[in-house]
Design a protein around this nucleic acid. Structure first.
Lengths: 125, 125
DNA sequence: TTGGAATTACGAAACTCTTCGTATATTTGA
DNA sequence: TCAAATATACGAAGAGTTTCGTAATTCCAA
């Protein structure tokens, strides 16, 4: 099975669908356009291409189509990370984690959650 | 200041320069060509473009130029991560870390190193 | 009912990235 | 010395992405 790798623009649209649920092109466009200059037909075309690639499906029963993400957020995130880990971090997830932790400030609560996850991972072994 | 975002091919070349130190086009090409089909002039062109972008500098004192990375590995890794964290993980490094840890098998030693890093981070607060 | 607004479909331009062929210059060794 | 090997420069093709204009269709409100 072919791995679907969303482009950057496609990811923007997927995020909107993940966060807002199924959307019309108009709805997606309004959100995109609130962050940057973009024409309506550009948004439309992107979503049509995503449909062609199988990244989204759409309900065509009424004239105004309703789009739904076909990739889960979790899966897409994993794909992105796998690629980075492979390409940039020599396949070492730990290297990536340490670079991320060293660079970014995480809140106490977040650090606690991460430690908890680490303990669970160790117990599983 | 403009952020330099290496493309995938450019990253391949940077990695060679980071690991092997300064290189001629020929040296870089030999390493690239051991992993995939690629013509010499392709490698040359890529490195010329990288030079134009300021990703590398080169010593032109002899006919055969010697290229040197101008971005550090650490900085490039941080840039890649920052972008992903911003684009995909809503700005939360912790979300990225958890996705990475949940997905990939890290060795005990790696997990230990990560826990240690977490402790250091907590003590710093 | 009908004209304007909204929607989809489609083609093509502009841009970036990757690739390589060809031209030109330099070095080298037989 | 001078032909072959090696190097750089450069242009351009091909693929993928992003952008939008235009045409055709459908819907809705006056």
């Amino acid at each position: 099975m072919k791995v679907l790798k969303p482009t950057e623009s496609e990811l923007d649209i997927l995020k909107i669908l993940w966060e807002n649920g199924d959307c019309t092109v108009r709805q997606v466009h309004e959100i995109l356009a609130s962050n940057k200059e973009i024409g309506y037909t550009t948004t439309l075309k992107l979503m049509q291409i995503m449909h062609g690639k199988g990244l989204v499906e759409r309900d065509e029963s009424s004239k105004t189509h309703i789009y739904k993400a076909l990739v889960s957020r979790d899966k897409a995130e994993k794909q992105v990370l796998n690629k980075i880990i492979k390409d940039v971090f020599d396949g070492s997830a730990a290297r990536l984690v340490m670079q991320a932790l060293g660079n970014h400030q995480a809140s106490d609560a977040e650090l606690e959650k991460i430690k908890q996850l680490l303990n669970e991972l160790e117990n599983k072994k």
